[in-house]
């Protein structure tokens, strides 16, 4: 905050508002900059591309946001997407499940999340360590199943679920992502699950002493995180037409980046699922715009890393806002 002295002089209320609107301003700013830099940016086609790219990330981030709101972290999301994507494609090819392959992803993802949650909550190991370990396990298993190669599928129904357009110009995967987002905003703000997860993040000891089943809800949060990563994995494979070793590879950085940029604090209790949409948009626009400008992928990594750090710097200090 010392960097912007004027900001400090604002009243706390104004400051909280400024912080809440910061991601929106960044979206507008980035879009403006890329629009000036590239004629291809403000085209319907590009908008469709951004939507499709952002969808996998958004779905995977929805569940992970609960884990972070709870004051924990899930590093295994990328690996979960890889493993669930691989297994749903293999199951599709073996049993001809069609659209049902998404259910395979969902179920397997939930099971993987359950493993994370049980080890974390009952083994009393920091979530960082648990999910660092399972990240390695899940991706190792997936790469063995795929034998290091991309496995494609043939199922028009499954493909249509991702890249079809029930609403013109809006890929179905984006539609599904937005619907899930809306549903989980409600879950976060208006259900017992959301309430308790926020309470654990804001004051775990208080929640426990108030008699809330803290451990059980820690497990639930990881199950939700895994299940949504599973859906993201299956749909990502559907969109790409195959499950390959690189599936979900950029998700570790992108998911944590999107959640944090959106304004959810890594220390827990502050932020929310509704804000993650903005974080995802910023990451997706950044990726897309830098591509259009012809920036090489290595430089893109540098830029993205810096943006994430700046976002956390801007958002630190007192609580951004209490959840509504």
């Amino acid at each position: 905050m010392t960097a912007v002295p004027a900001f400090r002089d604002l009243s706390p209320r104004l400051r909280a508002h400024a912080r809440a609107w910061l991601p929106v301003a960044v979206v507008v700013l980035l879009a403006g900059a890329f629009g000036v830099g590239s004629d291809a940016f403000f085209t319907l086609r590009n908008a469709t591309a951004i939507a499709a790219q952002a969808s996998t990330l958004l779905i995977a981030c929805l569940g992970a946001t609960f884990v972070i709101v709870m004051g924990s972290i899930d590093l295994s999301i990328g690996a979960t997407v890889l493993l669930t994507g691989a297994v749903s494609v293999l199951a599709l090819n073996a049993f001809g499940l069609g659209v049902g392959a998404v259910a395979v992803g969902l179920g397997l993802g939930a099971a993987l999340g359950l493993v994370n949650g049980l080890v974390f909550a009952f083994g009393r190991i920091p979530s960082f360590v648990v999910t660092l370990g399972t990240m390695s396990v899940f991706s190792g298993v997936a790469l063995r199943l795929l034998d290091g190669r991309a496995v494609s599928y043939r199922s028009p129904a499954f493909e249509a679920l991702a890249i079809g357009q029930w609403i013109p110009r809006l890929p179905n995967i984006a539609l599904i992502a937005l619907a899930l987002w809306a549903a989980f905003v409600v879950v976060a703000n208006h259900t017992r699950f959301g309430r308790i997860v926020f309470a654990i993040g804001a004051g775990e000891d208080v929640a426990r002493i108030a008699g809330l089943p803290v451990r059980r809800y820690k497990v639930y949060a990881f199950v939700v995180s895994g299940a949504l990563a599973g859906v993201a994995g299956a749909l990502a494979a559907a969109r790409l037409g195959a499950a390959g070793p690189t599936l979900g590879g950029d998700l570790l950085l992108n998911s944590l980046g999107a959640i944090v940029i959106g304004g959810t604090s890594l220390s827990g209790g502050v932020g929310g699922v509704h804000r993650t949409l903005l974080g995802v948009l910023i990451i997706a626009i950044l990726d897309d715009g830098l591509n259009l400008l012809g920036t090489d992928p290595y430089t893109q990594l540098v830029v993205k890393g810096i943006v994430i750090i700046l976002a956390v710097l801007a958002g630190r200090g007192e609580a951004v806002e209490t959840p509504k």
Partner: peptide, 20 residues
């Protein structure tokens, strides 16, 4: 402050904690 109330939450939420 450590075990009784969550300062960042409003009064309603703090009371709600024990009455889930």
């Amino acid at each position: 402050t450590r075990e009784g109330v969550i300062g960042a939450f409003d009064i309603a939420r703090n009371i709600g904690l024990g009455n889930a």
